[in-house]
Design a protein around this nucleic acid. Structure first.
Length: 306
DNA sequence: AAGTCCGCCAACCGCATCTAA
DNA sequence: GTTAGATGCGGTTGGCGGACT
């Protein structure tokens, strides 16, 4: 009926890859390209299943992978996209060339979640934590909201249920991007060069026309190669789209209008110029835009301590 | 110096979706 | 239309190394 089994599971090797296996796999993929993964281990002379080979290539051997920790700009993009997409790591990774979903997922779980909690932001809902007390929270081993505690229905709906409806809009307003496994093989010298003078952002969707704050991050490299990614143009996506996030935060129109006004009037200004100095600057600002002035000030004070 | 704890990350597992037969 | 394997994705885990006692 269906296809033939992808591989004989008996006798297949598991666990860490050896340098020899890496060499075989990389050599095969580089000379033959990515074909059907079930055939790769056999053709490359590996005692691994195709799934394992795909993962190894995708997460470690791909020549266009970046190494090292995520930059501040990349962290900021991850946080912003996570607020809109939730745990859709592959979607998030598609906006960060050279980064894998696994890498971003690990970085989120080990670094970003802690940072957000430290400054009193719930990493699940991207809203201020109830009784957020950044001076005490890092020491308390509180269960992660998304891990131990039952998530209130309202919160779940905010991020998870609305994301499907809004995802199309997000895609339209962000870089066309690509998924990690859709990445065509590139030589290192073909990797995108960071843009320094970004063009104006795309127009926001009709539903979020109240205000659009597009913040460019000149030090971040973006998907800009239409030849290799299928992008139609070289447009940078706006990192912070205030209205979209406001909707996701569950704000109604009046609140959004009020917050829009406070955006301009607020004395606690986001660090628009030196964004690279603090990844969470814009994020904190947008997250606190529905809060009172005192709350906003408190959050910025926390940020300074952070 | 030895033992323990803890954080990080590569890799596995299992589910969902896609697609060939 | 149905079935079952392939593929993609997100959650989880185990091992390693550094920090701490």
């Amino acid at each position: 009926m269906g296809r033939q089994p992808c591989c004989d599971k008996v006798g297949l090797k598991k666990g860490p890859w050896t340098a020899e296996e890496d060499q075989k796999l990389a050599g095969f993929i580089l000379s033959h390209g990515q074909c059907c993964w079930r055939a790769v281990p056999k053709l490359a002379g590996l005692l691994r299943c195709g799934k394992s080979c795909r993962l190894r290539w995708t997460n470690y051997l791909r020549p266009d992978l970046k190494r090292g920790l995520l930059s501040k700009d990349e962290e900021k993009i991850v946080v912003d996209l996570h607020a809109q997409l939730g745990n859709r790591w592959s979607k998030i990774a598609s906006h960060l060339p050279g980064r894998t979903d696994n890498e971003i997922k690990n970085h989120w779980n080990t670094h970003i979640k802690k940072k957000l909690r430290k400054i009193g932001i719930d990493p699940l809902t991207h809203k201020p934590l109830p009784d957020a007390s950044p001076r005490h929270q890092p020491e308390q081993k509180l269960p992660a909201p998304e891990e131990k505690l039952p998530v209130p229905e309202e919160k779940t709906e905010t991020v998870a249920d609305q994301r499907d409806e809004r995802e199309e809009q997000i895609v339209l307003t962000k870089s066309p991007g690509f998924c990690t496994d859709e990445v065509p093989m590139l030589c290192p010298d073909e990797i995108v060069v960071p843009l320094r003078d970004p063009p104006p952002p795309l127009a926001p969707p009709a539903s979020s026309s109240t205000m659009c704050m597009a913040v460019s991050t000149p030090t971040t490299s973006y998907c800009s190669s239409s030849a290799s990614t299928g992008c139609e143009d070289d447009t940078l996506f706006p990192i912070v789209e205030w209205p979209d996030t406001a909707y996701l935060m569950g704000l109604d129109d009046d609140m959004i209008a009020a917050a829009s006004a406070s955006w301009e009037d607020c004395l606690v200004q986001p660090p628009l110029q030196p964004f690279a100095e603090d990844t969470f600057g814009a994020y904190i600002y947008q997250s606190s835009s529905s809060a009172s002035f005192d709350q906003q000030e408190a959050i910025w004070n926390k940020l300074e301590l952070f």
